[in-house]
Simulated scan of single mutants.
Amino acid sequence: MIEGVLSDVDVPAGMLLAGYFVAASERLAGSGTPCAERLVTASECLSDRLSQDGCWFATVREALAACLLFPVPAEARLCALLVPSEHVGGFVADIRAAGTDEPVLLAHLGGRGAGATAAREMAENGNELGWEVLGYDYGLLHSWLCNDLYDDGVLSLGVGANEHGLLPDRDAAERVAAWANTRGDTKPVTWFPGALIEWDTPIESRPGPATIEPEPSTTQPWWRRILQL
Rank of each mutant, 00 (worst) to 15 (best):
E198V: 07
F91Q: 07
L129T: 04
L39Q: 00
N125F: 04
G99K: 11
P103M: 00
L105Q: 12
P34K: 09
A195S: 07
E174F: 12
A173F: 08
P209E: 15
R96C: 10
C67L: 05
G110I: 05
V22L: 07
D137R: 12
S156F: 05
P221T: 00
L68P: 03
L129V: 02
N127A: 04
W191S: 03
V22C: 03
Y138H: 15
G139E: 12
A18E: 15
G30F: 10
V133Q: 01
A195L: 03
A24Q: 04
D137M: 08
P168M: 11
W199T: 00
V104L: 02
A18G: 04
A118Q: 12
L167K: 08
I95H: 10
A195H: 11
N125T: 03
D169C: 11
V22Y: 09
S205N: 08
N127S: 12
E86P: 15
Y20R: 13
V88I: 14
R77D: 01
L39E: 02
I203C: 00
E121T: 10
N162I: 03
E62A: 14
A210I: 15
T41L: 02
A63Q: 12
A123W: 02
F192R: 14
L50M: 14
L69R: 09
F21S: 05
W199Q: 06
V5K: 06
Y20S: 04
G160C: 14
A29S: 13
L196E: 04
A118I: 14
S43R: 01
V176E: 05
A180G: 06
H108K: 10
L129D: 06
W191T: 02
G111F: 05
R61Q: 10
T201F: 01
L78N: 02
T182Q: 13
F21A: 04
V83G: 12
I95N: 08
L155M: 09
L157I: 04
L50H: 09
L105T: 06
L166V: 01
T201E: 14
F91R: 10
V133L: 02
S51A: 13
L109P: 09
T219K: 11
E128H: 08
L134C: 03
R112N: 14
L46W: 05
R112D: 13
G14H: 12
A66L: 06
L81E: 13
E213A: 15
F91A: 08
G4Q: 09
G165K: 02
D171A: 15
W191A: 04
R175D: 11
V11L: 09
G4D: 09
F57D: 07
I197R: 01
A23I: 00
V176M: 06
S156N: 07
